[in-house]
Amino acid sequence: MARSLNVLQKSLTMSAGSLMVFFTLLAYGQASSYRNISGLSNSSITLEASFISPNVIEVMWYHKTTDVSEVLLAKVQNGRLSDKLSDRYMEEDGGRTLKIPNVSKNDSGVYKAEAALLDGTILPPVLYNVTVYDPVPIPDVKHQVKRIGDQYNVTLQCSVPSNRSDISYTWKYRRGDKEYQNLNDTGGTIWMMVPVNQLDMEIMCTAHNPADQKNISTRIQDGEEEVPKRNHEISAGIIAFLAVMVVVAVTVALIWTLKKRISNRRGQGNQSNENENLSSPVQDTGTQESTFIEISLGKTKYKPKEDAEENWSQPF
């Protein structure tokens, strides 16, 4: 459906452009005698007005687009330039040839060459329908192969990076070193039914407009049959499941490692507190002596102060 809409849009665009050119030429009164000239952006185009009579004394070149009035580009009298819109336009051969370098899309439109003879006769004008195109990008080609019985259904798709309505596609094929053969199918997507024993071939797609073309080739060989879509879906599901499982396992391992480190730090803190509580109290280091009890092998010895010893040693 989308492809049909693109084709319809392209046809309408081309038809509208053709009608605009037709009415422009009709305004000149010479709608059936114009020459189509295709130019490529940033290149040069040459317009030649082959007036047969040698008695031409005046040649004038005009440019008319579909939205502006007629503009005089150059006027040559008796082989010499007498009027010129810009140095960009170069006239040769007594004004019978007009060259326009480095063209752009703004140079598209209808050009007219008029000539006058020595006796004042005005020759019928020569009209040119000039269209300037952008270069064609390098195309990309893809193919799919699916076996149906004893034949292969081959789908080929050729496209350019930008969606442009001025580009058309043609196809060729060859086997081995033989010459390319034209395929009757045109368009960006084509389908072929190929016998099983004739699948090995080279396909060339050419993307082109009236001013430029680019081509690309692809080779189709045996053994390229498309894997059923369901198998692709199953494989993708298995890969996704395994990826989820790996993420879950890594997450669990990280959480377990973190908890273990926290538990070890808490255990070391509790043991340090217990050691502090079990340490010996600090003894008084004062200069005065005090009585104390020595405990050794279950015997208790009492040591009185010196003044007490002296009192016990004196008689009553």
Rank of each mutant, 00 (worst) to 15 (best):
N311K: 09
S32E: 13
M14Q: 13
A249V: 04
M193G: 06
A74D: 00
V248N: 02
Q268M: 04
G94N: 12
F292Y: 10
V71I: 12
S108Y: 00
T300R: 09
T65E: 11
S86K: 03
D166Q: 05
L297S: 15
S313N: 09
E309P: 02
R147W: 01
W256E: 14
Y28D: 02
A113P: 01
V136N: 00
D212K: 01
P228D: 08
Y152W: 08
K146N: 08
W256T: 08
S38G: 05
T285H: 01
K172F: 15
K84D: 00
D177C: 12
D83Y: 13
P135K: 06
N55G: 02
F292A: 12
P281G: 10
E276K: 14
R174I: 03
N129D: 05
N55A: 12
Q288F: 05
T189V: 10
M201E: 01
E226H: 09
N102T: 14
G17V: 03
P315W: 11
R164V: 11
A211L: 00
C205R: 05
Y173L: 15
W61H: 01
M201F: 06
L72S: 08
A211M: 03
C205E: 01
T206V: 11
K303Q: 13
I216M: 04
T257C: 05
Q314H: 15
N55I: 00
N184V: 09
I234D: 04
I122C: 04
M1D: 03
E310M: 14
E70M: 10
K99F: 08
K10P: 09
T46V: 14
L127D: 01
G188F: 04
M20I: 15
E224K: 10
I238L: 06
Q221A: 02
A2G: 12
K303H: 15
L73Y: 00
R175I: 12
K260T: 10
G120E: 10
G298H: 10
E58L: 03
E276H: 10
T131L: 08
E274Y: 10
S82H: 04
T189S: 08
T291K: 13
G298P: 03
S104Q: 02
Y89S: 11
S263K: 07
L254N: 13
Y180P: 02
Y34F: 04
E289T: 09
V196N: 03
V244A: 01
K305V: 06
W61R: 01
R80D: 05
Y180K: 04
V71E: 05
L117E: 00
P101G: 04
G237R: 15
F316S: 07
V247K: 12
V132Y: 03
R88W: 10
S50Y: 07
K142S: 06
V248T: 12
L5K: 10
V7Q: 07
D83S: 15
D140T: 13
V132W: 02
S159W: 00
A249Y: 11
G17L: 05
Y169S: 02
M245R: 07
S69I: 11
P161N: 06
Q9S: 11
N106A: 15
S263W: 02
V196D: 11
D222H: 00
M1S: 07
N42M: 07
T170V: 01
K10I: 12
F51D: 04
S43M: 08
Q30P: 02
Q77M: 09
S4V: 06
A308L: 05
S11I: 13
T66E: 15
V227F: 09
Q213S: 09
E226W: 06
G29T: 01
H208Q: 11
I293N: 12
V160D: 04
